[in-house]
């Protein structure tokens, strides 16, 4: 571990900029370019960092007479001030996009993105502890910063992070005990991650119809969620144009609509139920991971008042 006296983020950002990285830091809504930032608030951003690896719109190919390949995005980016939950979520997204047939667009961005996380200040909506995370978890980050008063402790997590740090002046080694700088947080919300058997039993329960009353089938929870990855592919332009992919949401009413007009999830409660089962049961079956990091954005910003912790507590009853 290293320690740095003073504002490390500024030093790091300037160093990265000098190495041709585009540096992003959080503001209240999402990550913005370092040059435009006025200050760097400590809380969660609304949009997670998923948009840097899987942008909301991504052009796949262009077509006209025939197809033209679109050059892959090799821009070097550094995200400074990422929350531990978002960094963990990136490792989950890797399981989808880098396993099996590899997605070259995602992979190029992933290789060229440096993730510098920082200890966060959880709010009343967070429940990352239920999944083994804490405000100090380093999983998924390249470098981890712990800000304590006037100094910053720096943990190099990957070799890439180490390489960057090795070229920065003013870093001093320290063997301070981690437990003296880590602060425990009392999370008010909890979820039981071993809920798979209960979910299997409760599939046909009437609770789903009752719970989905407040859902308005918008896409807010899925778009803000750092681990949701569904996308749609569309062609824009009849004779010439481009084919792009865009974020999609399993909560939209037409998500499963087939050409024959059959819609397996026509009702709101079927779609809502599917979201929970997908994140807590089906992904466990196919990838061995729960696709939730406990960031709580879906609860905080749901316009209708759906609360994932409340619903999972009811599943267990």
């Amino acid at each position: 571990m290293f320690v740095y006296e003073g504002e490390f983020i500024k030093t790091l950002a300037e160093k990265l900029i000098s190495e041709d990285y585009r540096v992003y830091v959080p503001d209240s809504r999402s990550f913005i370019e370092y040059e435009k930032a006025k200050d760097i608030p400590k809380g969660k951003t609304r949009k997670s960092i998923k948009e840097f690896l899987l942008p909301q719109n991504e052009v796949l190919i262009r077509y006209g007479k025939w197809i033209e390949e679109v050059p892959l995005d090799r821009e070097k980016r550094a995200l400074i001030g990422v929350n531990p939950c978002d960094a963990k979520a990136v490792t989950l997204l890797d399981k989808i996009y880098l396993e099996g047939l590899m997605d070259p667009y995602y992979q190029t961005r992933r290789e060229n993105t440096l993730i510098v996380s920082r200890n966060c200040e959880p709010n009343n909506y967070c429940f990352c502890e239920s999944f083994g995370l804490t405000p100090f978890s380093t999983e998924g980050s390249d470098i981890f910063l712990i800000e304590k008063g006037e100094r910053t402790y720096i943990i190099p997590v990957t070799s890439r992070g180490e390489k960057i740090l090795s070229s920065i002046d003013g870093l001093m080694n320290t063997d301070v005990d981690e437990s003296s700088i880590i602060v425990q947080h009392n999370f008010s919300r909890k979820v039981n991650p071993d809920i798979q058997d209960e979910l299997r039993k409760k599939f046909d329960d009437e609770m789903w119809k009752r719970i989905s009353l407040n859902c308005i089938s918008c896409g807010t929870c899925t778009f803000l969620c750092p681990t949701c990855f569904c996308f749609d592919m569309l062609d824009e332009g009849e004779k010439e144009g481009f084919r792009y992919r865009a974020w999609d949401s399993c909560q939209f009413p037409l998500y499963t609509l087939e050409s024959s007009s059959h819609n397996p999830r026509r009702e709101k409660w079927q779609r809502l139920r599917n979201r929970f089962y997908d994140k807590f049961l089906y992904t466990v079956e196919s990838k061995g991971e729960i696709f939730c990091v406990g960031c709580g954005r879906c609860i905080e910003f749901c316009p209708g008042g759906i609360d994932i912790t409340e619903i999972l507590a009811e599943v267990e009853k």
């Binding site: 308005i216 089938s217 918008c218 896409g219 807010t220 778009f223 949401s249 316009p303 209708g304």
Partner: peptide
Amino acid sequence: EKCIRCYACRSA
């Protein structure tokens, strides 16, 4: 620029 077209406005 900030809109993410979640359609929450329309659904609410």
